[in-house]
Design a protein around this nucleic acid. Structure first.
Length: 879
RNA sequence: GGGCGAUUAGCUCAGUUGGUUAGAGCACCUGACUUACAUUCAGGGGGUCGAGGGUUCAACUCCUUCAUCGCCCACCA
């Protein structure tokens, strides 16, 4: 027998097994005729990513179900990979360059992209290594990257198909512009944050009568340099006479018309709106409606350009704001400054304030894609867990807007579009093809230039569930593993990714990409803040793995994973302690089981029935637990599953069963049953704590291969016996009652006491059968039957399930104290009894409540009555 | 402005169709180094389930109003 260390040494074990599993290819999958597939695609972490708690949670959830399904005989594929994460990754490398005093422009596009690939080569797999440390049982041989050649081909294919269908178009619109990243962003990539700001009231003089003014209100005064009108509501009596007249725009001295538009809300501000069509989405619409000029006053970096006038050219937008305010103030044109909180959009990558900005971009028409994606959820083909996210999803689908997919960065999928000198568009897989198209169209060879932009990262991610399986090529993999079974992600990603994957799956494959969407909570610190590097409140999962072990990290995270989780370092102790408990229980068992019968079959009821209660009980208890664990896992209630296992293993198995059988190791049944229950428990716990269970498995069942490929225990319902569980609960209650009395009387644990009982009140339970257990676990010297128990002196006595049980207190007894304790107990019982009696007296209760409830309550009342009566007798007899 | 979620022990949370005396972990208190484990064991204290109203024989659970906190969505400058 191998000697086991006193503590579970996760440091050696974790790495050993994660390497072993991968090296042996145990998670490798392939289409399999006789097995059902179960597929999950990982939400591909960014190549820039390092494992944070959000990943740890997300990936543990997936690993649990994938290990569970694998053990249940499925061909369980967990598809791993990483996302090129356009803006994020480019930012990282640009920062690196900045340290060298360079800009991407200094390198030029090709060299810069090459540098990004170098970076990816060097650091891109960091998170993959970290996922392995966590125990993630992905099929690593399939690891994909969203910029792999074949994946890129899929992206182009999709672009070309959608363009052909008229679902992709190019146009000049107002979009969200990040001045730092210098690219367009989709609406989803803008994070709104309510910020305190000011509403500035500014006087615009009437051209026709310079002494008359119209006052407009704005939060962004610098945009006035691009104003091309002022709008009022046509129904607004105050401004009726102004409509059609002209104003002189202060600072700029441009003549602008006063127009009417229903959009204007007379209640807000002054009821007169300055219209800046090039720098505000609403004004853009107004500008289109009224055919106004669009004056762009910003450079891409959000400094003002020459349209803004010589005084402001080159100034930063926020500096310009200050200057303009003070200039207006001096000119007495600023009539009022109101405090005003408003939502300011920020870039989700760098948190810079975004600018609404006019530019020519590529868009996906979303309405035609949204319809079927909506239906997939309303018909129940796709289900959200928890269900409330359904509404969030549908709401987004119903209010969907077109998706801006072009990005002015260099890292990503280059838009497969070429232009000729006449701005004709050629959409093609490559330049050669585009040239051919151009030749056909123009009748001569022409020079083309490719669109410089790349596609939004999510334009490749939305293909993940099938592009990873070889699409657009037909493949056995795709046939077999698609659609996937379940998707695990955080709520932030529903719009970015989940919703769009549904669209893409239906559009390109004709089939939904997954059936269940499990939305898990966000990991926060104890103050409820999101964990983030910049806040410095992040707990590093790798640090936890180092200090507590991967099993501890996994177990503790899941334990806390009801809704959002608030974690602190100490919370990981639960998992560490539990792993250690499993380890030490194994040590005990291995030390005492030398003669395991290899033919022992725990499923044989006839054999089990001949055993003593404790064995039957633990077997029944195990299968009861297993049954519940199965249900919990199947319904995505993982923390519940863990609670069940924890309770079973620690409380039932270790604290009771192992203690009870401790002096019976020479019994064969004891050895066989204990060993087998350990084995089964390890399997049940394996998806949750893969490392400790695998390590132990190798000590107790080395001939059986790896536990991760073992078959999940089948429920043996013939061995589930409630009566055994009840009988055992009597033993437990009895021991507890005696321990209780001992504690109350401060009896030293070293001192064994005499114990007496009177079982005349319970004929179904034979206490003497359990004498050994009671003697040992309750520290008793003797256990004697005594029908005149209440006449004894110097005892403490209590009633358990109709059985009077008393311990001898020797000379120390204080009868008054004991009596007082029992009176107090009796009072409590009487209160309960009275309440119950009242309820049963109530005719409407007995009439309306279900019969079984009434019956149950009657039974309870009888038991309570009996107990109070007995207690009364005991009290009366105490002297 | 709309929607969603939360509010249960000092802390973090369970509580699945309404039905025993509302549970767990941590923390706390008492006791024990009992040769599997002090990352342990035994015992204990602690909750009018956010507030008010309602439905019901019965409410932590259903309805309603309110309060506090959090999240998401929204073009009112």
């Amino acid at each position: 027998m191998t000697e086991l260390s006193k503590r579970f040494n996760f440091k050696e074990v974790d790495e050993k097994w994660s390497n072993h599993w991968v090296d042996k290819g145990l998670f490798h999958t392939k289409p399999h005729k006789d097995k059902k597939p179960y597929t999950i695609v990982i939400p591909p972490p960014n190549v820039t990513g390092i494992l944070h708690m959000g990943h740890a949670l997300n990936d543990t959830l997936q690993d649990i179900i994938i290990r569970y399904k694998r053990m249940n005989g499925y061909e369980a594929l967990w598809m791993p990979g990483t996302d090129h994460a356009g803006i994020a990754t480019q930012n990282v490398v640009e920062k690196q360059l900045a340290k060298e005093g360079q800009k991407r422009q200094d390198l030029g596009r090709d060299a810069f992209v090459e540098r990004l690939w170098d970076w990816k080569q060097q650091y891109g797999d960091t998170i993959i290594h970290q996922l392995k440390k966590l125990g993630s049982s992905c099929d690593w041989s399939r690891t994909r990257f969203t910029m792999d050649d074949d994946y890129s081909h899929a992206v182009k294919d999709v672009f070309i198909k959608l363009y052909a269908k008229g679902l992709i178009y190019r146009g000049q619109y107002i979009i969200n512009w990040c001045p730092r990243c210098q690219t367009a962003l989709s609406d989803e990539e803008v994070e709104h944050e309510d910020l305190p700001g000011n509403l500035y009231h500014i006087k615009y003089a009437l051209k026709e009568d310079p002494n008359k003014f119209l006052v407009v209100a704005t939060t962004r005064p610098e945009t006035m340099l691009g104003d091309t009108a002022v709008a009022v509501n046509p129904k607004d009596e105050r401004y009726k006479d102004f409509i059609g007249k002209n104003l002189i725009l202060p600072l700029v001295n441009r003549e602008i018309p006063i127009i009417e538009d229903d959009f204007v809300n007379p209640e807000f501000g002054t009821g007169a709106v300055k219209v800046t069509p090039a720098h505000d989405p609403n004004d853009f619409d107004i500008g289109k409606r009224h055919d106004l000029p669009f004056i762009n006053i910003l450079n891409p970096d959000a400094t003002l350009n020459k349209e803004a006038g010589a005084d402001y050219e080159g100034m930063d937008r926020f500096e310009a704001r200050e200057v303009i305010i003070s200039t207006l103030k001096e000119a007495k044109l600023l009539t009022k400054v109101e405090q005003h909180t408003h939502a300011v959009g920020h870039c989700y990558r760098c948190h810079t304030v975004i600018e609404p900005y006019i530019s020519k971009q590529w868009f996906v028409k979303m309405k035609p894609l949204a319809g079927p994606a909506r239906d997939a959820v309303t018909t129940g083909a796709i289900k959200f867990y928890p269900d409330r996210w359904t509404k969030v999803y549908l709401n987004w689908m119903d209010n969907i807007r077109d998706w801006c997919i072009s990005r002015q960065i260099w890292w990503g999928h280059r838009i497969p579009v070429w232009y000729d000198d006449q701005e004709n568009i050629y959409v093609a897989y490559n330049e050669e093809e585009a040239l051919a198209q151009a030749r056909d169209k123009r009748g001569e060879a022409v020079k083309l230039r490719q669109d410089p932009d790349v596609l939004d990262t999510w334009f490749s991610s939305w293909l993940w569930p099938f592009a990873t399986l070889g699409w657009p090529n037909k493949s056995e993999d795709l046939d077999y593993f698609y659609p996937t079974a379940s998707l695990f992600t955080a709520s932030e990603i529903i719009f970015f990714w989940v919703a769009r994957m549904v669209m893409a799956g239906i559009e390109f494959i004709g089939e939904i990409p997954f059936k269940d969407v499990y939305i898990h909570g966000t990991v926060r610190d104890t103050e409820g803040r999101k964990m983030s590097k910049s806040l410095g409140n992040a707990i590093d999962p790798l640090e936890i793995i180092n200090e507590y072990g991967a099993d501890a990290l996994r177990f503790s995270l899941i334990m806390n994973s009801g809704q959002d989780l608030f974690v602190s370092k100490e919370k990981f102790e639960v998992g560490r302690n539990f792993a250690n408990k499993i380890w030490n229980a194994t040590r005990l068992i291995l030390m005492n089981t030398s003669e395991i019968d290899s033919n022992f079959d725990i499923t044989k009821k006839e054999h089990i029935q001949t055993m003593e209660l404790s064995h039957q009980w633990i077997i029944s208890k195990f299968y009861t637990t297993l049954q519940k664990v199965n249900q919990s896992i199947e319904s995505y209630r993982y923390s519940e599953a863990e609670t069940l296992m924890y309770e079973f293993f620690w409380s039932n198995f270790c604290d009771w069963y192992l203690e009870i059988i401790k002096n019976k190791w020479d019994d064969k049944d004891t050895q066989n049953v204990t060993y087998k229950i350990l084995e089964l428990s390890l399997q049940m716990m394996h998806p949750f704590m893969p490392f400790v269970t695998e390590e132990i498995w190798q000590h107790i069942k080395p001939e059986a291969g790896e536990i991760c490929t073992s078959l999940w225990p089948e429920i043996q319902s013939q061995l589930i016996d409630e009566s055994k569980e009840e009988q055992m609960s009597y033993v437990i209650d009895m021991i507890t009652a005696v321990r209780n009395m001992r504690a109350q009387w401060n009896i030293s644990p070293k001192l064994k006491t005499k114990c007496y009982f009177d079982a005349s009140g319970n004929t179904t339970f034979n206490i003497q059968e359990h004498e050994q257990s009671l003697l040992r676990l309750a520290q008793l010297e003797t256990l004697e039957e005594d029908i005149k128990i209440t006449q004894r002196k110097n005892i403490a006595i209590t009633l358990v399930h109709g059985i009077k049980i008393a311990i001898d207190l020797g000379e120390v007894v204080d009868v008054a104290k004991e009596k007082a304790r029992m009176i107090k107990e009796r009072e409590g019982l009487i209160k309960l009894k009275d309440n119950l009696a009242k309820r049963l007296d109530n005719k409407s209760f007995t009439d309306k409540a279900p019969k079984e409830v009434v019956k149950k309550e009657k039974g309870r009342l009888e038991a309570l009555e009996q107990k109070t009566e007995e207690l009364q007798k005991v009290i009366a007899s105490l002297h």
